[in-house]
Every structure is written in structure tokens, then in C-alpha cells.
Design a binder for these strands. Structure first.
Lengths: 137, 137
DNA sequence: TATTGTTATACTCTATAACTATA
DNA sequence: TATAGTTATAGAGTATAACAATA
């Protein structure tokens, strides 16, 4: 069976991302966390007081889509919202959130290490710089 | 604002794929094609008579999710289904489908060329091999 | 005027379970 | 028994439009 898709770098990018993210989501499942939860935990942990709108801009998630995400994490007692002024709220991790973040960080770092091991050594140092050029420039 | 996500290769992979696929989808929009339509056009074009199930296995799409996709493309007169035996159907491109595939191929090859140009030259030859190691092994 | 938070809505993609009919 | 096609359904992610309140 011919597969012309296998010659396309863009297709490789799509399939690799799908495969890797699928595995990562599976590792997060025992922690009861979604992919977006982990991003939020890391960012709020590193930037206490950040607002949902700022978070959305960093993650490229629409403001409107941050609402249910923050609500879910607040309901899970992972973070809390403190009024900054009449319209903004600063986000902070609860103690539960900090503990969950620590667990997530162990999963993340283990996973990232394994990920890089799966990239053949000859290509390894080129992996992240090549990808970053495609979305950070 | 600190962003610990920027140190994670897996995050770079996810964001790069999202950015690139978003741009590609925008280029396909004038053709009235979705991402999955293009994969199907390419594969059916290269393998006339292939079944929906075979296609699903190549694309890693569940059998059940192939149904509305094939139905939509059949309704758009891009492909047709011919009975192979009592339970299987072979897929073939119509003339419209072949013409649309040719248009799509021009978009694809232009896009892929631009994509590779955006990868810094020093990393370029490592890009696809590194990605392929993550999902084809 | 611009921004924050919010509600409502819709679409795409994906996953699962179950069923029928055929190989 | 295994496979092909199908239906129905649910979850997740994402996009847009609109609104109130505040900066």
C-alpha cells in the first residue's frame, strides 16, 4: 500500500505530536489532570497572581475557554482566585495545587527525558530548536 | 512573566504542530477541504480500491469515524464507493476528486517547501527523521 | 476605549459501545 | 471467529459573538 503522506514533513509533525501527546495524557490520567491543567499548574505556580486572561495569552487559549478550565481547577481545590481590582482576579495555587504540581513535575520530567531518548542521538540537539522556529518566531 | 513550558521539548512539539496545522488548514479552506479530506484524497488517489477500514488504519482514525468523513466526500462527489464483496467497498476518486487532489497537491508541496524553509538550515535535515522516530517505531 | 470575565453556542476531532451482515 | 460498515453518543478542544462591569 502506497502512502504518499510519509514523505511530508508536516504530516510527520502532526503524527508525532499526536502520538506523543496521547502518551503524555495517559501518564497524567492517574493524577486526574488534563493536558491544559498541567500547563496552567506550571504557569500559575511560577507566576502567582497571574490572571486568567494573561494565562490564556501565554497558552494561546481564548479568554472564553479559560472560564470552564479555571472553574474546574478551582472546584478541584487546585487553585483559588483572589480579586485584584473590580474586574481582575489573580490566580494562586492552593496547597493541594502545589502538591499536585510537584507530582506533575515528576511525571513531566520523566516523560520529557524518555521523549528525548527516543529521538536518535544524531538528531537530538536539533529537535527543540527546529520546532521552536516554527511557532516562536 | 516566567514560562517554564518553554523548556519542555514536548511542549515545543505540541505548539509547533498546532501552529503549522492551523496555517495549513487555512490554506486548504479555499479548496473546501479539511485536513482529513486531504489525507484521504492522497491515499485513495495512490491506492484506488482501498477500503474505508484500510484507510482508517493508515490514518489512525477509528472505523466509526471514517463513516461521516467518507459520506461527506462522497456527497461532494470527490470519491465513490464500489462494492468489492458483500461487505467491503473500494474507494476511488471521481474526476472531480482527481482534479481537487491535483489542486491540493500544489498547496501541499508549496506549504511543505515553505515549512522546511522556516526550519533553520542547521537543523533542517534532522527535522523529519527526529519526528518520524517518535511515531513510526 | 480597551480589557476582564462571562454565557451561550457550534463545530471538529476523537473514543467507545453495540449492532448487522459478511468473510 | 474475525472483519466491514454503521449508528449513536459522549468528551475534549476550539472558535465566535455578545454582554456587563471596570480600567
Amino acid at each position: 500500500m502506497k502512502d504518499p503522506l510519509l514523505d511530508l514533513p508536516g504530516y510527520s509533525l502532526r503524527r508525532a505530536a499526536a502520538a506523543v501527546m496521547g502518551e503524555f495524557v495517559a501518564r497524567l490520567e492517574p493524577l486526574g489532570l488534563r493536558l491544559s491543567d498541567v500547563s496552567a499548574l506550571l504557569l500559575v505556580g511560577a507566576n502567582p497572581g497571574v490572571t486568567a486572561s494573561q494565562l490564556g495569552r501565554m497558552l494561546d487559549i481564548q479568554r472564553a475557554n479559560m472560564v470552564p478550565m479555571i472553574a474546574r481547577m478551582e472546584a478541584a481545590r487546585l487553585l483559588l482566585r483572589q480579586p485584584i481590582d473590580g474586574k481582575s482576579h489573580g490566580l494562586r495555587l492552593t496547597e493541594i495545587g502545589q502538591a499536585r504540581l510537584a507530582e506533575a513535575q515528576r511525571v513531566i520530567h520523566g516523560f520529557e527525558a524518555e521523549l528525548m531518548e527516543r529521538v536518535p542521538q544524531a538528531h537530538r540537539e536539533h529537535f527543540k530548536p527546529a520546532l521552536d522556529a516554527l511557532w516562536r518566531d
